[in-house]
Amino acid sequence: MSIQQGQVGGGAPMAPAVAQAAGVRAAAFEAPSIRSRLSQVVFIGLLGLATFLFVFPFIWLISASLKTRENVFSNELFPMPLHFENYPKIFEIAPVANWFLNSVIVGLLAAATVTVSSALVAFAFAYFRFPHRNLVFGLVLASMMLPGAVIMIPNFLIWNALGQVNTLTPLWAGNLFGSAFYIFLLRQFFLGLPRELFEAARVDGASYPRMWWSIALPLTRAALIVVFIFELKASWTDLVRPLIFLRDTALFTLPQGLKSLVDRFNPQIGGQGEFHLVMAASVIVTVPMIIIFFLAQRYFVEGIATTGSKG
């Protein structure tokens, strides 16, 4: 995970404001001289080149997934004819449908649990006054620095002792207890809410859980969505935990399944050469996240942009 903190404010109304700010700024740069016109063309040209370089691997991925076994390592961009049959074939030779379902289940559970639990804990740090609050919060921040490798083995032993190895549980159940980065992020949002709102609710006799549920959560909906999709993405792309915890092929998640296909078919390491099928599987792993990215783009970009701004 390489994303941190932020103060996204209301979230929803951000995008137009940002676009406007960009427009204003552009106007300031656009002095109507030929020289600046020319530099505009150069800038757009450079960005166009960069766009080509960033998009090209995706095109290559799709192109390779439609090639034959013989020409998957060839460099033709438009393989004719297009071999769409690679897609049904990959579902036949490996339990890709199972993997897909497993990834969906784990992703939704991981994202839902971490959002609720982190929001609870973040509210405690943002709203309540209690002894040693800063010290405890410092501990939350410090725990983000810990390399995953240090606690990987004991965590395996815990789930092993609980008889949960080779089940999907270890891939999400740890999220019931919140996650330092999301606690940090949500605390920032909660701190942005005016305290008077809560004081008024207190006067009206609202309990603390009610204040959390009926005031804090609805007002930070955008931030909760940011947390949900960040964790969905983290879970969907994770390889390490499935590798550690899952043994049966039918239980694999998509990335782990893809890894097993690479091992089986990569001719570079002596596998059978059906790499076109591996590429079809790569597309299946990649496309759902791309779709979610386009649907929730605003939240991804806002979440990241406000990260680091207070680094």
Partner: peptide, 22 residues
């Protein structure tokens, strides 16, 4: 352009590795 530059970051690392084998 920002959308385009950000898009690859949601690609699973395994798929990135597989693609770059090609």
């Amino acid at each position: 352009f920002r959308t385009i530059f950000y898009m690859p970051t949601v690609t699973p690392a395994v798929a990135v590795g597989t693609l770059f084998l090609l």
